[in-house]
Design a protein around this nucleic acid. Structure first.
Length: 452
RNA sequence: GGGGGUGUAGUGUAGCGGCCUAACACGCUGCCCUGUCAAGGCAGAGAUCGCGGGUUCAAAUCCCGUCAUCCCCGCCA
C-alpha cells in the first residue's frame, strides 16, 4: 500500500493500481461485500487509533467508513475535507457502523486542504451551532455539510417534479427574458440595469410573457426561473432573488381550474419528494403533508371574519403574517389540512391584469395558497378581454401605450386564462420547517448579501 | 420605510466596572493508543474583546459615534 500526493496532470494517480476498477458510490458499498472497490470523495473524519485508522469518506451519496491498518504515516497525511481516492476491499464487520467497511489497500490524495476549514462539516449542526451568517459566508463549503446541503436537494426534487407533472399535463416549459424594459406589474420595486444606452430592469415575474405565450398558441406554459424584487425587506421569508415556479394555462372555465391543477401538482411534488428524499426528510424531521383531494377555499372576507370570531384577531384589509398562521391553524382543526386557498382579493390589492369577480366586480378571481402559515403561491384568472384590460390599465393611472408589447396578442382572440407562481424556497422551507428561506437558496441574495 | 437586538480565538459561547495576565467546548498542532463511529488520554498554539472617541485611578464590561449583522412589522412568493 502506498499513498500518493498526486497532482494533476503529471502525477495523477501515479501510485494507484487496478485502474480498471470502476468507481462506486458510498451508498453502494453494502452491495459489494467481498469485492475490490474504488471510491472517491472527501475525508469526512479521521480517527486514529494507533496503528488502526478509520477514515470516513463522503461523496455525493453519503458516507462510508474505511480502515487503514498498520500504516500510520498515511493517516498523518489525511486531513479533513481533503479530496481522496482509494482502492480497497469491502468487508463485513459487526463493529462497523453499517455492518460493512472498506479495508483500504491504496489511497491517493487528490487535493490537500490549504488550511483547516473555517466551519466543521462532520458534526451535527445542533452541536456546532453556526449562525446563518457564517454558513452563508462559506456557502460552497457549508453546503458540503450533509444537513445543510440536504435542503437544496429537496428543492431540486421539488423543481424536477414541478416540471415532470406539468409536462405530463401538456405544459411547455418556456424561458422568458429576465432583462425587461419596464416595471411590469407595478407595486414592487425593480432593480435597474444598464442596457447599453438605456435603462432596463430585472424581471420581477414572468407574468406578461407567460400570458403572451398562452396567447401564442401553446395554451399551457410553465417556467422555472429567477425573479428579482428590489424590496428592502429584511425578514426570514424574503429574498431579493428567488426561484419562481410559474404556470399559466388557457381556455379555463374558471379560476378553480387553476387551484385544482395546483392541488394535483402539489400532491405529485410532495409524493415525489417523499420517494426521492427519504434521508433528507429524516434529517429535518419533516412530515410529508397530505394534500387533500380538495384544498379548502376561503374567501378573504370570510378569512378575516374567521380570525375575528375564533381568535379575536383583526387584520386590516389583508392577512398579516400572524393572520396567515392563525388561518392555517384553523384549517388544520376544521378541515385537517395545512393548506388553504384564500380567494377573492379586492381589486385594489391585485395587479391590473387580475380578473374581476362576476358576483362582485370590486373583487378578483384570484387567490393565495397558504401552507403551514405562509403564503407560498399567488395566482388567479387574468383579464383576457382586450378592452377590459386596457380599461383596467387606465384605471390605475397607467398608460396602455407602455404595455403595447403585452397587449398586442389580446387583440387577436386571447382565451380565458390564468395561472400562478410558487416560491420554490418558501415551499422547501415550509416542508422542512427551516426557520429562514435563505437556507433553501444556494446563494441567497438579500438586502446586504451580494457575495458569495 | 419603521421598530428591537447582537458584535469576545477558525466555529459556538461565558464573562457585563478591578479577582481578565479574558474562560469553556469543538476545531487546529505534537505525542500515545488495533474497533473508533459526537472516539479517548497527555501536552500545546491561537483573541490587542467589530472600529473610533469619551467617562474613570481602572473599560471586554458604562456613554457617544460608526460599521457589520440578526430579528420583527409594512409589502410580497
Amino acid at each position: 500500500m502506498g499513498v500518493g500526493t498526486s497532482r494533476y496532470p503529471e502525477g495523477r494517480d501515479r501510485t494507484m493500481s487496478r485502474r480498471t476498477q470502476p468507481r462506486i458510490w458510498a451508498e453502494e458499498v453494502k452491495a459489494h461485500v467481498g469485492s475490490g472497490v474504488r471510491l472517491k470523495g472527501w475525508v469526512h473524519t479521521v480517527r486514529e487509533l494507533g496503528k488502526l485508522v478509520f477514515v470516513v469518506l463522503r461523496d455525493r451519496t453519503g458516507t462510508v467508513q474505511c480502515k487503514i491498518r498498520g500504516q500510520k504515516e498515511i493517516a498523518k497525511q489525511l486531513e479533513e475535507e481533503a479530496a481522496i481516492e482509494l482502492v480497497g476491499t469491502v468487508v463485513e464487520d459487526p463493529r462497523a457502523p453499517e455492518g460493512v467497511e472498506v479495508d483500504v489497500e491504496e489511497l491517493a490524495l487528490l487535493a490537500k486542504p490549504v488550511e483547516p476549514p473555517p466551519i466543521q462539516i462532520n458534526r451535527p449542526l445542533d452541536l456546532i451551532g453556526m449562525r446563518l451568517e457564517t454558513i452563508l459566508n462559506h456557502r460552497a463549503l457549508s453546503l458540503r455539510h450533509p444537513e445543510i446541503g440536504s435542503a437544496l436537494k429537496v428543492r431540486a426534487e421539488f423543481i424536477w417534479a414541478f416540471r415532470e407533472y406539468l409536462r405530463s399535463q401538456g405544459f411547455l416549459e418556456v424561458q422568458t427574458p429576465k432583462i425587461v424594459a419596464a416595471g411590469t406589474e407595478g407595486g414592487t420595486a425593480l432593480f435597474a440595469v444598464q442596457y447599453f444606452e438605456r435603462t432596463a430592469y430585472l424581471a420581477q415575474s414572468p407574468q406578461f410573457y407567460k400570458q403572451m405565450l398562452v396567447g401564442a398558441g401553446y395554451e399551457r406554459v410553465c417556467e422555472v426561473g429567477p425573479v428579482y424584487r428590489a424590496e428592502e425587506h429584511n425578514t426570514t421569508r424574503h429574498l431579493n432573488e428567488y426561484i419562481s415556479l410559474d404556470y399559466e394555462m388557457g381556455f379555463i372555465d374558471d379560476f378553480r381550474e387553476i387551484t385544482r391543477l395546483e392541488t394535483e401538482l402539489l400532491r405529485f411534488m410532495f409524493e415525489h419528494v417523499e420517494r426521492a428524499c427519504p434521508r433528507e426528510l429524516e434529517i429535518y424531521g419533516a412530515e410529508l403533508p397530505k394534500v387533500p383531494s380538495e384544498i379548502p377555499h376561503v374567501r378573504l372576507d370570510e378569512a378575516l371574519s374567521i380570525l375575528e370570531t375564533n381568535y379575536q384577531k383583526r387584520c386590516e384589509g389583508d392577512l398579516d403574517p400572524e393572520g396567515e398562521k392563525l388561518l392555517c391553524e384553523y384549517a388544520q382543526e376544521r378541515w385537517g389540512t395545512e393548506f388553504v386557498f384564500v380567494t377573492h382579493y379586492p381589486r385594489e390589492h391585485r395587479p391590473m391584469y387580475a380578473m374581476p369577480s362576476e358576483e362582485d366586480p370590486s373583487l378578483t378571481n384570484s387567490f393565495d395558497l397558504l401552507y403551514k402559515g405562509l403564503e407560498i403561491t399567488t395566482g388567479g384568472q387574468r383579464i383576457h378581454d382586450y378592452h377590459m384590460l386596457v380599461e383596467s390599465i387606465r384605471s390605475r393611472g397607467l398608460d396602455p401605450e407602455d404595455f403595447a408589447f403585452y397587449l398586442e396578442i389580446f387583440k387577436y382572440g386571447m382565451p380565458p386564462h390564468g395561472g400562478l407562481a410558487i416560491g420554490a424556497e418558501r415551499l422547501t422551507a415550509q416542508l422542512l420547517n427551516l426557520p429562514n428561506v435563505r437556507q433553501a437558496s444556494f446563494f441567497p441574495r438579500d438586502r446586504t448579501r451580494l457575495v458569495p
